[in-house]
Design a protein around this nucleic acid. Structure first.
Lengths: 157, 157
DNA sequence: TTAACCCTCATACTTTAGGGTGATTTTTTA
DNA sequence: TAAAAAATCACCCTAAAGTATGAGGGTTAA
């Protein structure tokens, strides 16, 4: 997205490094003035330098280039997670057991009784029993009401 | 962003590579002890070759390489505001009518279809029809799921 | 160890929810 | 004004939810 301005900086550093390397080579050469080079090997030498430095250039470019990252912002609606604090007092006051709370949560997620039963590895009838107890304790008639009441009382997020 | 930790690694690799290059040069020199350096022009020539080909390598790598792109899906959590703000865009997007929204709200309050029908002075069948349309538009199967989805999308408080 | 509680499950029944189809009337829009 | 969309309703049927009652087994605390 906003990575294009980085390109100049990257190239600059690469170029600077190239110049630095060249200078280093010059220095080396300067210090070894009296080294002997046979004339006919010159082309090989120059070619080697060319190949090596091109490889170096490619390597540098590949290594030092940061991959472009494209950000895709995906909107996720949340149930204000940081806000939810389980109201344990209410749980105790209403005398709701762990299992019942579990069923209540799954219920609020939109699961059917059958789905809840499968998820908790119990029978459909068991879930129905839990529901009946829950409705009684929450003083409601339907699951939708149970969800509403439980949310209001911070029993479920 | 989080580039600072990369600096050391990069510099290290560069330094290592420099050392490696220097060693390679020494090796070359050692093997070509009797080579004669005629004049300064040679160093200039070799250096030029080095620089040019490294530049070529960099250019090649940058131009001919497919841009490295990394897709990052970032989840943007939109908090549910305390004061409910209706997400009208979502309503329009989902093509939910006024009446359907009304039914949805009452549904979320825990009313049965019969109760909603009485409240809106229409027949039970009408409510069922509205429900069916709602479920289709919200891509859900049950009223509990409809409520959950609608709340997440700020269609209902 | 007995009472209280929780979890489990069953059977039988009633009510509510949901699917599919088709149709009429009103309202809105192109 | 004609077409599209919205709102209304009916009928039939299936699926799911909910009610009522009874009961067995496990845990726990008085």
């Amino acid at each position: 997205m906003a990575n294009t301005p980085n390109f100049l900086a990257k190239n600059k550093s690469i170029i600077l490094y190239g110049i630095f390397l060249a200078m280093l080579l010059f220095l080396l050469k300067w210090l070894e003035l009296r080294f002997i080079i046979i004339n006919h090997a010159f082309e090989i030498y120059a070619g080697s330098i060319a190949v090596i430095f091109m490889a170096l250039g490619i390597w540098l470019a590949l290594k030092l280039t940061k991959p472009k990252t494209i950000l895709i912002e995906k909107e996720v609606f949340t149930e204000k997670p940081e806000t939810f604090i389980l109201n344990e007092k209410e749980l105790i006051r209403l005398n709701i057991s762990k299992r019942e709370l579990e069923v209540l949560q799954l219920m609020a997620e939109g699961l059917s009784n059958q789905e809840i039963a499968l998820k908790l590895f119990v029978s459909l009838n068991t879930i129905k029993t839990h529901n009946a107890r829950l409705f009684e304790k929450l003083a409601v008639k339907r699951r939708t009401q149970a969800i509403e009441t439980a949310k209001k009382r911070n029993i479920i997020p």
